[in-house]
Amino acid sequence: MPSDQVNKVNSAQYKKMVEEQAPKSNIGKDCLMAFLFGGSLCVLGQIAFDIAKSAGLDKDLASAVSSISLITLAAILTAFNVFDDIGRIAGAGTLVPITGFANSVVASAMEFKTEGFVFGTSVKLFVIAGPVVVFGTVFSVIYGIILLILKAMVVDVGL
C-alpha cells in the first residue's frame, strides 16, 4: 500500500473529509465578543484619557496615561490568573489592543521564571510579543523613510 493511503483513502480525499467534518469556530459570536470587549477597552482608555486631561495634562501625556492604565490593568489581571479566562471569551477583543501585548509579556515572564531570571524570564520575555516589536520597528523605519522622501519632494516641487 502506498504510504499516503489508508484503506483506499488518499491524502487529497482525507483532507477533504477533515475539512468538511472539523467543527468550525463561530465567527459571528467571536466577532461580536471581540467588538464588545475591544470596544469596552476603548471606553476605559478614553475615561483614563479624560481624567488625565481634566487633571491638567496635555494631549500627549494624557494619551500616555491612557496606554499605561490599560497595560497596568492587563498585567495585573494576568498576574492574578484572570486575563486568560477573559481572553477565552473575548478573543481578539482583549488580544489585539495593547492589553494583549502586556498579557503576552507578563505571561511569558511568569511562565519561564522557573528557568531562572536570565535564561528563563529575560530570554523568554518576548517569546510571543517579539514579532510585534520586530515588525513595529521595521515598519516605523519604512514609514519614516517614505515620509522623508515625500517631504523632500514637497520642498523640491515647491508646493
Binding site: L95, N103, E111
Partner: peptide
C-alpha cells in the same frame, strides 16, 4: 502547554478541533 503552545496565562483562544 509551555513546551508545545503558549504560556499558561496567555489570553488566546483555541480552535474547536
Amino acid at each position: 502547554e509551555r513546551q508545545f503552545r503558549y504560556p499558561l496565562e496567555y489570553g488566546g483562544q483555541r480552535p474547536p478541533t
